[in-house]
Design a protein around this nucleic acid. Structure first.
Lengths: 200, 200
DNA sequence: TCGAAAAATGAATATTAATTCATGAATAAC
DNA sequence: GTTATTCATGAATTAATATTCATTTTTCGA
């Protein structure tokens, strides 16, 4: 009755990954709605129909793309935070990792920035990432407040958004400059700004 | 030969504005691509064909919407900055104004956040806003550095993105919480964070 | 080497929605 | 009050493209 998607392979299949990457490139270039199945198929070097052996539909391709990338990135961020001992250290590692991952995968960076809306599933997926990230930050900030390296009069909910917003802003600028400069080198100055502020 | 769009009225016409506002609501709810001409027309209480008397096409509606809002908001921001005398004051006024305007027009806030890409025209429009805003910030920061209220060792290009990113982050969070709390009240704590940083 | 099962193909189909335009209503000019 | 001009309508047209599926190709075990 239902289609036989090549099942076991999901993870291994060359073709599945080929399609996913091609989709990433095409979505990043044209945006989800203007990208066509035929473009993705052509980019992956397969027939249009083949995409439907591996994915339910166009939405599903984006969904799986984001899902996959999210997991990879989040694991790395988690590991990065673990490497730090005190709050300041952890924050520094997190920001560096964040910038590094996005710099190394511009398609992902563009898609995360742009395709946040519309597909309900994807919207909530992205909210989840955001939430995970903000939770990481919460922990760091609270630890910092205990250690005394972060002011105790601050509202964690605001601080974490302040930090995330600034990183995203820096990434957005980098994307719109077509990734022509080194993003990772902004990590330290950025962290310095969080910590010390701009006051003379 | 060519259509007669109701010309003189462009600015005055009830209908033009009605359509523009309806479009704002529909775009904000469904996103540009999922929104249909029929929905917008229905919302505005006119026939589908009527939209084409006032706008070239669907893209044009979004273009005009953003264009209009941009001008309004930018003028207000400009005026807000003028009200301050020193850099810190100006920054405070700017951020307050920014949050106020977006709080008062959630549709606009959503659209500015989401429809940044795809339509070439609109992309560059949004870049222009961003640029104007960043230029406002540049001036403030430079003034602050001269006055001594802002550290002189900071790279203006980074500071301004840091500030814009954080405001946008705060707005994004507010939008995704469905505008259920008061956004403007975040202005002062936010400015305090810029200035003093989080360090304990 | 053969043949059954799995995988891939791409032309045909179906759907959706932007845009047009022949027609009709409202408005204004005289 | 009549006519000309502007404005509005919404059904019909058109175009685009996601998805299906009958057919072909490949794989692989016996």
């Amino acid at each position: 009755m239902q289609k036989n998607k090549p099942d076991l392979q999901k993870n291994k299949s060359e073709k599945y990954n080929k399609i996913l990457n091609s989709a990433g490139a095409v979505f990043a270039e044209y945006g989800f709605y203007k990208a066509t199945i035929s473009q993705i198929a052509a980019q992956a070097g397969v027939a249009d129909g083949t995409l439907y052996l591996y994915f339910k539909n166009k939405d599903d391709i984006l969904y799986q793309f984001i899902n996959f990338k999210t997991h990879v990135v989040f694991n790395k961020m988690h590991a990065a935070v673990e490497k730090g001992v005190n709050a300041e250290d952890k924050l520094r590692h997190l920001i560096r990792c964040h910038l590094e991952e996005f710099q190394n995968d511009k398609n992902m960076a563009i898609i995360f920035q742009s395709e946040v809306r519309y597909l309900r599933d994807i919207e909530s997926q992205i909210k989840d990432i955001s939430k995970m990230y903000l939770d990481l930050l919460s922990d760091i900030i609270e630890q910092g407040q205990i250690e005394g390296s972060i002011r105790q009069d601050l509202f964690v909910g605001l601080v974490k958004r302040f930090i995330l917003g600034a990183v995203e802003g820096v990434i957005r600028t980098w994307v719109s400059a077509d990734g022509r400069y080194d993003l990772v080198s902004m990590a330290d100055p950025l962290v310095d700004l969080y910590l010390r502020g701009v006051k003379g």
